[in-house]
Nucleic acid binder design. Structure first.
Length: 871
RNA sequence: GCCCGGGUGGCGGAACUGGUAGACGCGCAGGACUUAAAAUCCUGUUGACCGUAAGGUCAGUAUCGGUUCGAUUCCGAUCUCGGGCACCA
């Protein structure tokens, strides 16, 4: 009987799934004396193309861990679900004139079947689907929680809006406005990223991806929902210190959040005594070098301060930059442009009057939307100053000029040496722009101080004189949360006839998508939902007032912000997840997925989780303790798989020809999980050959019985040693979390190769090997385990322990080298005395050849390893 | 430009806290079995040179330099590939 993967894999999949072998019992039924392990995959978007070979990579890794942990006696939670809202499904539905729901269900069924054909040990009873009303009811519920919360600046956490202190003496309308201005979810009418091809707005985080696909993104003002993720910037940074994530992933999030420390400085405006212009700077120590100011063209003060002579030009500039998209602004940015407003600001440190410009290299959305320009020490300001012939003052010198600078500062008569003079001239002429830390100069009371001290001193001075204060800024922007799509979660929001916005009560949830046969794009900037009159027009259930539903839908990221919580309690209709269950299973112990979600999904989900934590719905403030990013699997030609290149490998074909076990093992054998690796059909055949070797080692292909050379006897010491080394290697590989299963498989191959050299085989040894193989290739392992006469499944069979003593070799090869060059080696007993090794080395004929006639200077002995003779 | 990772045979990749570089697999070559082929099994496989051979010598982990008895591993500089950010003041 040959190794028939088709038959045998079908058999065991049926056994696992129909008997619900991997069902994780409900909390009450669980043996809580056992430790828990929650191992999570990033759930897929069930696309029409079916499973990609990239999916099983991470899923195999988590499956190995999940199966291993069960054998180790853990209560394991290992679920799977579908992130099924999103653009492709919607576009497909428009083309086919169907409701996306129909297409999505087909895709999901196909995906589930494919995943099951790989034998993954998910608890399918916990499957979730973000587009299911029963699921998105809770997504909407969480939106309401966010909407009905504000951020308490003192406690640095979200609180219910009812607890918000409202200033006294406000009218009803003012109160309404005030509360709305504090909500964590808010409507704003600001420039957003509009993608005409997709007919929707995009979050900042999504823009690069769409541009890469060749779509255009333009800036246009629209009324949009945003979520105040920026309030959590600091906590999102702090949280990263508590989790076990790869350093580079942390770095990416840190950069994305983009924290910078500095100060806000207030500048008075000449002839506008009451107006104050605030700027954010990370270099308050260069304040003495500020020779002009720049406002973003959209800055609210521009209109007021512009003088009549300059108005025409200023207005033209504002108009021009408004029509430019962000990309155009960036592309044209190689040559900075700007115009003079005619107004002057007063530098608070020296009362000098400096011109106020507007330029689109200053962004309204960062800091205060205005800057003080220090052209001597900022490259952008320098470029601009040269072009518009603005004054440049050197106020920082590099380390090498420290001595000269001190002399210059301390002398009455301003002695200046040639080097310093040259530096001053170069800076003034725009030849040098020194942006690093150094020592202040030409800066009044901070002259001579190091940049660090100068910053501190000037901030203190600013604060004492109420001219500014210490400040921290983030690159992170609020999360643009609405999309003009049909296929997404509707907002539980209505717009009343009286112009007010109202959030519906949770008892009205879910707000279902209209059950239309098909729909058309609106043809405008509105969602297709806007065209479905019977859905849009509604009445306020509380007052009976006429109202229109919010027609925007939530972004795809919404549903994936909390799916890991729903798995814990998927059928609960009272709450999204029971607190006791949440408390038992959370946090996620291991989370594996692609690196493309580093800044989007992972940042949003962490934020979402923190809000739920603040409001008391979850017990941890970080959801994912350990994160691992798998690399991508490239085509056989070493480039990304794509239909157009024709290098796409279909998992179904692979499973059919070689089997799920071969597919799983091959993907693990390719290399470390995090690396990008090229597919190789020949490599796959190699793994299949290995599994065939395992099969034939144990099974007589003619009779289908166990091979006759397998004896139920005590194995010799050497075999035992090899077995225990193998157990140790595989155990350590799984335990250490590096996800390098390629070396585990290599060890299995070494083991099997050695067995092939043996005349006599031992049942206990081979059985133990089968247990080790099981997490990697579960189907063949179950079958062989069965063939050995065992009636139980390996799913919960105890993992073998290794004996440390047996993993140590009793004979070791000692290397003899002369001057670091290997000259000889000998196999010797382990743990011999240094003297013995030294003697053996000196006796070695090859060594003698190399040391004869030379003076021995030194002998270095490394126990069990080597002897090095220095001559 | 800035911030992260990497560069090891023909290929994918191994190498513990500095101690035999190239585990394991693929490919290739040779052999066994076969009428033959496939499959399978065995052997070899970093390069150059010397030797009929056993064997030996030298070079070698992107490049150059340093620390060390000894460096793929540590340090510095350079080249290069991949990823991320990109007027963020």
């Amino acid at each position: 009987m040959k190794y028939n993967h088709l038959e045998l894999e079908k058999k065991w999949q049926e056994f696992w799934y129909s008997n619900k072998i991997f069902r994780t019992p409900d909390l009450d039924e669980l043996d809580k004396t056992k430790p828990k392990f929650y191992v999570l995959d990033m759930f897929p978007y069930p696309s029409g193309d079916g499973l990609h070979v990239g999916h099983p990579e991470g899923y195999t890794a988590t499956d190995i861990i999940a199966r291993y942990k069960r054998m180790r006696g853990y209560n394991v939670l290992h679920p799977m679900g579908w992130d099924a809202f999103g653009l492709p499904a919607e576009q497909f539905a428009i083309k086919k004139k169907i409701n996306p729901r129909v297409g999505v269900l087909e895709c999901i069924n196909r995906f589930r079947k494919q995943l099951q054909s790989l034998g993954f040990s998910y608890d399918w009873d916990r499957e979730v689907n973000t587009t299911d009303e029963k699921y998105y009811k809770w997504t909407q519920w969480m939106f309401l929680k966010i909407y009905n919360s504000y951020f308490d600046e003192k406690e640095k956490k979200a609180k219910p809006i009812e607890e918000l202190e409202i200033p006294a003496g406000l009218t009803e309308d003012e109160k309404y406005e005030y509360i709305n201005s504090k909500r964590l979810a808010y409507l704003s009418d600001s420039p957003v990223n509009w993608c005409p091809e997709l007919g929707t707005v995009l979050a900042n985080e999504e823009v690069p991806e769409q541009l890469e696909k060749g779509y255009t993104v333009v800036r246009r003002p629209m009324k949009q929902w945003s979520i105040r993720i920026t309030k959590y910037a600091e906590r999102l940074l702090e949280g990263l210190e508590k989790v076990d994530w790869p350093e580079n992933i942390k770095k990416l999030q840190i950069n994305w959040i983009g924290r910078s420390e500095g100060a806000v400085v207030k500048f008075k405006i000449k002839n506008f005594d009451l107006k104050v212009l605030e700027v954010f700077t990370t270099r308050p120590d260069t304040l003495f070098g500020a020779t002009y100011m720049v406002l973003a063209p959209e800055h609210p003060l521009v209109n007021e301060i512009t003088t009549e002579e300059c108005r025409k030009e200023v207005n033209k500039y504002i108009e021009d930059s408004a029509t430019k998209s962000d990309i155009e602004r960036t592309e044209l940015s190689k040559t900075k442009t700007g115009v003079f407003t005619g107004a002057y600001a007063i530098n608070p440190v020296n009362n000098s009057e400096i011109p106020i410009m507007i330029a689109d290299y200053v962004l309204l959305s960062y800091g205060t939307g205005a800057i003080m320009a220090v052209p001597g020490h900022d490259e952008r300001d320098m470029e601009f100053a040269i072009k518009y012939k603005l004054n440049i003052i050197p106020v920082v010198v590099p380390e090498y000029l420290k001595e000269s600078a001190i002399k210059y500062i301390n002398s009455e008569s301003k002695i200046i040496d040639d080097e310093l003079q040259k530096y001053f001239d170069d800076v003034r002429e725009g030849k040098i722009c020194f942006v690093d830390d150094g020592y202040s100069i030409n800066s009044g009371f901070i002259s001579g101080m190091s940049t660090k001290d100068a910053k501190e001193t000037i901030i203190k001075w600013l604060e004492e004189n109420e001219l500014g204060k210490r400040s921290v800024n983030y690159k992170l922007r609020d999360w643009l949360f609405s999309r003009q799509r049909f296929w997404g979660e509707p907002f539980p929001i209505i717009h009343l006839e009286n112009g007010k916005i109202k959030a519906l009560d949770e008892k009205h949830l879910p707000i279902k998508l209209p059950d239309v046969k098909f729909f058309r794009p609106s043809g405008t900037v509105e969602s297709p939902l806007a065209t479905i009159e019977e859905w849009v027009n509604t009445i306020d259930p509380d007052t009976g007032m006429k109202a229109r539903r919010e027609t925007n839908t939530m972004p795809q990221w919404a549903g994936s912000c909390w799916y890991y919580l729903r798995y814990i309690d998927p059928y609960n209709e009272e709450i999204f997840c029971d607190k006791k269950k949440e408390n038992y299973w959370m946090p996620v112990d291991l989370y594996i997925g692609g690196a493309e979600h580093t800044v989007l999904h992972l940042l949003y989900a962490r934020f979402w989780h923190k809000v739920l934590y603040d409001l008391g719905y979850v017990s941890t403030d970080e959801p994912f303790m350990k994160l691992f990013n798998q690399g991508i699997i490239l085509g056989e030609d070493g480039v990304k798989m794509s239909k157009s290149r024709g290098n796409v490998i279909n998992p179904d074909d692979v499973i059919k020809e070689y089997g799920a076990d071969s597919m799983r093992m091959f993907e693990m054998f390719l290399g470390p999980l995090e690396a990008s690796k090229a597919w190789s059909t020949e490599g796959l055949a190699g793994i299949n050959r290995f599994l065939n070797r395992v099969w034939r080692l144990i099974i007589n292909e003619e009779t289908g019985e166990l091979n006759s050379n397998i004896y139920d006897e005590e194995p010799p010491l050497e075999i035992k040693r090899l077995l225990h080394r193998t157990i140790k290697k595989i155990t350590m590989d799984i335990e250490d979390g590096d996800m390098k299963f390629n070396t585990s498989i290599a060890q299995m191959m070494i083991f099997i190769n050695e067995m092939y050299k043996q005349k006599t085989l031992y049942k206990s040894v081979l059985e133990t090997f089968i247990i080790l193989l099981y997490p990697f290739a579960p189907h063949i392992s179950e079958e062989l385990w069965n063939k050995f006469g065992n009636n139980d499944s390996l799913a919960y069979h105890p993992w073998p322990e290794y004996d440390e003593e047996l993993t140590k070799a009793d004979r070791v090869t000692i290397v003899f080298s002369v001057n670091g060059k290997v000259r000889g080696k000998r196999e010797m007993d382990a743990n011999l005395e240094d003297k013995v090794l030294e003697q053996a080395a000196l006796e070695d004929p090859a060594v003698q050849r190399h040391i004869s006639g030379k003076q021995i200077k030194k002998i270095i002995v490394v126990r069990n390893k080597m002897v090095n003779i220095v001559v």
